[in-house]
């Protein structure tokens, strides 16, 4: 139960932050990416504002403590840079620029994005469903037997 309460609080803060910051407005996201157009720096303020409390939280995990609801903190940093990290990020970036939406805002804006928001979400969920199969295929290409 405690884990669910934490998840609800975290999701509520995330959702209200996405709403208030304007990150569910595709014009603001595409405006940030559009350096050759009317560039909008708002996204940098959002990123900076979000990184500050998170950096403090990461320091907390280095102390000899456990998460409040038990369990353990995430594994130490993975420093491996592989092809999928770059390839996936490039694919994500193309879609992000095209629609101006990433996964968080796609959920946060669902109540006011109209049919377009639902279409984007359905396509995104389909992509997420297909991804494990594509990743398995990519891995086979990487290591031919």
């Amino acid at each position: 139960m405690a884990r669910l309460i934490v998840a609800l609080i975290a999701g509520s803060l995330f959702g209200s932050g996405l709403f208030l910051s304007g990150m569910t407005d595709t014009n603001k996201v595409q405006g940030w990416l559009d350096v050759f157009g009317n560039w909008d720096p708002t996204l940098a303020f959002v990123m900076g504002g979000a990184i500050l409390p998170m950096a403090v939280a990461w320091q907390f995990t280095r102390m000899p403590r456990k998460p409040v609801t038990g369990g353990s903190f995430p594994a130490p940093l993975d420093t491996k840079l592989e092809r999928n990290l770059v390839l996936g990020s490039v694919l994500f970036g193309i879609g992000w620029g095209l629609a101006g939406l990433c996964p968080g805002p796609a959920i946060a804006s669902l109540s006011y994005a109209g049919p377009g928001g639902l279409v984007f979400l359905a396509a995104m969920l389909t992509g997420m469903w297909l991804a494990p199969m594509l990743r398995a295929r990519l891995d086979r290409v990487a290591q031919p037997e």
């Binding site: 609080i9 975290a10 932050g17 303020f45 959002v46 504002g49 500050l52 353990s72």
Partner: peptide, 28 residues
Amino acid sequence: WIMGLIGGMLIGLGGAAYLIGNGRIMGA
């Protein structure tokens, strides 16, 4: 920009709550 900063801090607080509370990384 100010709303972006305030909203961003709320996003970061959400991530902090998820990490310190449940030990998980808040990735949508």
